[in-house]
């Protein structure tokens, strides 16, 4: 438990380590969410454009 918000952000002197870990985690998770959406949209557009009709 932290005494104040200031103390919370300071993480007992380990702020750089703790917050960089969580920042990298956020990037990885957002990437995992966005990548399949883009891939799906891209494939769907090509199918709609009838690129695969032979």
């Amino acid at each position: 438990m932290h005494e104040s918000w200031q103390q919370f952000w300071a993480m007992g002197g380990y702020a750089g380590y703790v917050w960089s870990s969580y920042a990298i985690a956020a990037v990885v998770i957002v990437g995992n969410i966005v990548a399949p959406v883009i891939a799906h949209r891209h494939i769907a557009r090509r199918i709609k454009n009838e690129e695969f009709d032979d």
């Binding site: 438990m1 932290h2 993480m11 380990y14 380590y17 703790v18 870990s21 969580y22």
Partner: peptide, 20 residues
């Protein structure tokens, strides 16, 4: 990050645990 008590050995650095 917010509610768990601070670790007696590692201090707040142990909070990396919750993502690791």
């Amino acid at each position: 990050l917010v509610n768990a008590p601070v670790d007696y050995q590692q201090g707040d650095a142990f909070r990396i645990l919750y993502i690791h």
